[in-house]
Simulated scan of single mutants.
Amino acid sequence: MKTIVVTSQKGGSGKTTLCAHLAVEAERMGDCPVWLIDTDKQGTLSVWHERRNAETPQRAEISLTQIEKGLTALANRGAKYCFIDTPPTISEQNVTVLKLADLVVIPVRPSPADLWAVSHTVALAQEEGKPFLFVITQSKANANITAQTVAALSHHGRVAKTFIADRVHYAAAMTDGRSAPELANKGQAAQEIAGLWQDIKSCFNENNNSLNK
């Protein structure tokens, strides 16, 4: 089983939305079973999941003190991927979760504030020796700030080729427990999520050391 931790020190980066969408996409593409774990006290991912009609992805309610044992149990049950949502802060809790990651996904909006916050998250991942991947979220078409953000992030590590644009479909789908591709399976959001999931899967087919040179 591969454990993917979605984390960012900056609130509003689209962390929970990304976590939910990627988990659904993995199931849709047959990369299953997929599980979700919500470690954020706000519980937004849990609320989304409770509103969801589909039975997959499944969510495990595991306390932080039992999370390592919980992940082992999920792996023993045949889980292929587990996505973990985290609080928007640097804490011992996040460090505990990062230690268990096979890949750390760091969503970043194209803004100076998000860039300033990235260094702490990157430092934690590097300290734990974990490969990480930046994902541009809430991007706007043809905006210079997006290109500038990608250039700045590239100095720290790898940036996913697929950007997640600022689209109404993402928020609209989340309100009733769905994903944007489920809302409009041939729309641009669906293409973005499909492309991003392939970007993430490719990380597991490469030597970890090549991710963050």
Results as ranks from 00 to 15, higher is better:
134 F>P: 09
139 S>V: 01
30 G>Y: 08
135 V>M: 08
13 S>K: 06
199 D>L: 10
201 K>H: 09
139 S>E: 02
147 A>S: 13
39 T>P: 15
28 R>I: 11
127 E>L: 14
203 C>K: 00
145 I>H: 03
203 C>I: 07
80 K>T: 15
52 R>M: 06
124 L>G: 00
148 Q>T: 03
105 V>P: 09
29 M>G: 11
127 E>H: 07
25 E>C: 06
69 K>Y: 03
157 G>Y: 04
81 Y>K: 05
181 P>M: 05
204 F>Q: 03
180 A>C: 09
111 S>W: 00
142 N>V: 04
148 Q>M: 08
177 G>A: 14
73 A>L: 07
35 W>I: 06
10 K>P: 01
212 N>D: 02
74 L>C: 05
70 G>R: 02
159 V>K: 07
197 W>Q: 15
157 G>D: 05
123 A>D: 13
136 I>H: 01
73 A>R: 10
4 I>H: 05
22 L>H: 04
181 P>F: 05
165 A>M: 12
145 I>R: 08
86 T>I: 09
133 L>Q: 00
64 L>W: 02
98 L>W: 09
167 R>N: 00
105 V>L: 14
156 H>M: 14
22 L>N: 08
110 P>Q: 04
43 G>R: 05
61 E>K: 11
68 E>F: 00
202 S>V: 02
183 L>P: 03
187 G>F: 06
184 A>D: 15
70 G>M: 02
150 V>S: 08
35 W>C: 15
98 L>Q: 13
61 E>G: 02
196 L>H: 04
77 R>A: 08
46 S>R: 14
139 S>A: 15
78 G>V: 03
66 Q>R: 13
82 C>T: 15
157 G>Q: 06
96 T>E: 12
210 S>T: 13
124 L>M: 13
141 A>G: 04
87 P>R: 04
154 S>Y: 06
151 A>L: 07
116 W>F: 04
61 E>Y: 11
164 I>S: 10
100 L>M: 03
96 T>I: 11
92 E>H: 04
163 F>D: 11
201 K>N: 14
143 A>M: 01
166 D>R: 03
55 E>G: 00
213 K>Y: 02
189 A>Y: 03
70 G>V: 01
8 S>F: 05
113 A>H: 00
56 T>S: 15
187 G>A: 04
75 A>S: 11
12 G>Q: 12
140 K>T: 10
196 L>T: 01
30 G>P: 11
168 V>N: 13
52 R>I: 09
104 V>N: 07
33 P>Q: 11
30 G>W: 05
56 T>L: 15
52 R>G: 04
127 E>V: 06
97 V>Q: 13
172 A>M: 11
133 L>V: 01
181 P>H: 03
68 E>D: 13
195 G>N: 02
53 N>K: 12
192 E>S: 10
119 S>E: 14
45 L>Q: 09
92 E>P: 00
126 Q>H: 09
178 R>V: 02
152 A>I: 01
84 I>N: 12
131 P>M: 05
127 E>T: 05
83 F>C: 11
91 S>N: 10
109 R>A: 14
177 G>T: 14
60 A>W: 03
12 G>K: 10
81 Y>N: 09
117 A>E: 01
102 D>P: 02
83 F>M: 13
196 L>A: 03
120 H>M: 09
127 E>M: 11
175 T>Q: 14
169 H>N: 04
59 R>S: 09
